[in-house]
Design a protein around this nucleic acid. Sequence first.
RNA 1: GGGAGCAUAGCUCAGCUGGGAGAGCGCUUGCCUUACAAGCAAGAUGUCACAGGUUCAAGUCCUGUUGUUCCCACCA
Length: 882
Amino acid sequence: MELPKNYNPSEFESTIYKKWEASKCFTPEPTTEKSPFCIVIPPPNITGQLHIGHALNNTMQDIIIRHKRMQGFAALWLPGTDHASIATEAKIVDALKTNGQTKKDIGRTEFLKLAFEWKEKYGGKIVLQLRRLGCSCDWTREQFTMNDTCSRAVNDVFVKLYRKKLIYRGNRMINWCPNCKTALSDAEVEYSQKAGHMWYIKYPFENNTGYLTVATTRPETMFGDTAVAINPEDPNLSKFIGESVKLPLTDKVIKVIGDTYVEIGFGTGAVKITPGHDPNDFEVGLRHNLPIITVMNEDGTMNELAYFCAGDDRFVARKKVISALTEQGLLEKCEDYSHNVGECQRCGTVAEPRVSTQWFVKMSPLAKPAIKVVKDRRIVFIPDRFQHIYFNWMNNIRDWCISRQLWWGHQIPAWYCESCGHITVETKTPSKCASCGSTILKRDEDVLDTWFSSALWPFSTLGYPKMTKDLKYFYPTNVLVTAYDIIFFWVARMIFSGLAHMGEIPFPEVLIHGLVRDSEGKKMSKSAGNGIDPIDLIDRYGADALRVSLITGMAPGSDIRFGEEKMEPSRNFLNKLWNASRYVLANIKDTTIIDLADLKLTTAEKWILHKMNKTISEVNGNLRKYELGLGYAKIYDFIWTDLCDWYIEISKPSLYGSDVKMHDQTISVLVYVLKAALKLLHPFAPFITEQIWNEIRDDQDSKFLAVAKFPSSNTKFSFSKDYKRFENIKGIIRALRNARAEYALPPSKTVKIYIQTLDKSYIKKNLSHIYKLAHVTSAEFVTDKSQIKEKTISITLDNNEILIPLGDLVDIKKELERLNKEISKVTLEVNRGQNILANEGFISKAPKQLIAIETEKLNANTELLTKLQAKYSEITDKNSGL
RNA sequence: GGGAGCAUAGCUCAGCUGGGAGAGCGCUUGCCUUACAAGCAAGAUGUCACAGGUUCAAGUCCUGUUGUUCCCACCA
């Protein structure tokens, strides 16, 4: 039973993880003997590396699941990874590019083969990193969004929604990424303010009677203009409605139409309408039956309808259009203009509104019940305020574009009949057209949005559509833990999917955390070079230190700043625990551990047990409410302050002494308390606690701390009276230390003391602690301090007065200063108490208990003040002649 | 335009349902006390952004103001 002198987490963390995994600690069985508790992991992308945000997210989940597991739940933390359609495909495309190949060169089948190979080779990296963090996932149930289980669920859901007419195919305006060459959902476009220009272009009237000026930020799209719109209420311009204008740089003539979409007074009041390249114009176009002209290719270059710009990139075309207009005198002016530009979330390319045929999920029927369950609080967000974000999105939701022009993903299970055009949608490849029976069918080329499969995660991973044992037992899951930036993408979609396909919410609680920023509060990113690699931190400080650093001082839902400087205090704390455990272990040899019930406990022992019990009860409360930071702070305080700074110091005389009985008793209490502390801390710092546990546990204890019983508070450890008494002893010790410090007495310089007290019995019993901790050699109880002839300094406490004979060291001036300080402090307290108790409102309305406490406090303080003042005049009287 | 958060010690932040302001780091002083110098002990430091209000009682609840961050929508 021994631990190495130095706390060196790298020596044992991976060994411990292997033992947990080998012993199936994290693999629960569905059983009626236990209650289920399940968390599904937010599946990290297979392309990803563990970043600090993952570390926070997964640490939180691990704390929760470990706590529940230790509380006796059948706790399942279900892990898995996400195929990350766009990101992974981009990697494969890049790899091909280095060989001078494109994906079309090798074809779909070969491409997918390469992608799966890539996944096998690199996709497992992040799950290994999760193990290093200590995540107690059940790896025997690991899932992947594109494995058979999850794919079956995807197909099943697609077909069901299609049959319910909640999935449809349509020609609509969608967001398009010219770089990824695929459609995007609205959520996948990120908008930011960009400096740009507003160009004012003259559109001459067909009859050459002048011109209308339109303002635009995107002149290159003018080749696709099919009208100019004016608000019919516009007092100056409405008269032009019905006229025709010549579209500059082309041979086209377009109509001037009236539409209230145009805001009077903004810009010039006339708007060019380009239904093929602007979502609002598209709507206007529909209202007025305007032709939709697409002037751009899929890659962002202009097509043959763009006249002299055909083949040019859209931004090159913009410049060419502007210079052509300038040449022809049709550019009225150009202003600097800052406007919102949408970019592809994955690659940052400016997204392009584009009309194309895509698959959509019809949202409003799905959103309604999903809004209701949150309104009815069947699903709660923690903190509560995040439901606003959810409602805001759900209430304004538009149909979800789910098709992507990619190969890596779930290919849409729709087949087109070559002879009659009918679309057959089936979970399995159909042999013939469902309408005409033709056998010539062509499968839809597109794949589904990655989030389509993620939306099913809480039940697809448990076996849906099969009603498996796991699905029956663990669904609905219990809590979902995620950052707020993913509420739209994932949380919202899981909620409506769970309701639609399982007929039941996927989870009753959504625990939201913030984003991890750097020490300056900036978002961490590779390009900014301010990212911190959690694995590097684990290598240098240990996973426990990382976990605990992330949790320290964390408030629910708010962003945290994180820098390496946070690691040291955490590591120091763990080192403290390590050394405290070494102390206990070193003194455990040849002793008999006695059941606490068989011991006559001392005041100090009752004090630490009471404090332990209080901590247990508070920590359980905090964890129940997911107040992880608060819970950790309490454990930290208990271990460092109460256990190490006080109780271990107190235990030393009996552990180092020769009294075997006392030694056994002390070590028994110490071991009990340390074990409780290890259990409390285990969810937060699983490795170090398990390592120590392995040394300290006895035959009756659980082999693994990971599955030991989490402490719950117990009235048998409630000793409030002794707790208070020992707090008084601590007060005496602190006051003595304080006095010693003021007189700069080194520990080697011991003193004797006199004590005048009302209740000497418990002080007497605890004198040894005062001796040891305040460097006192002897104490004498006196009834009348005037008998003491030596020169003393005196410390006045509630019921006790302590006198230290310091002979010539006593400094009258210093003593008077000390007293003055005390007196003014206590005077403030007395005033405060008097004011409160003189307040009639307080007396009549405050809780009785509080009044009693205040009265008691006031009495004590008044008495103390009287004593202090008496002492002050006594000293001044005595020394008046000096 | 709509919505949300934040403002507490020099710094980074906790502070749960209102009832005497806390932690870590930093700072000052003294200690190598046989678990730990990654440590021990003692200490200093706050008009809890501002202004009102509710209440016997406000850092905590309400309203407004200022500063700041973020989300959503968007007028070419």
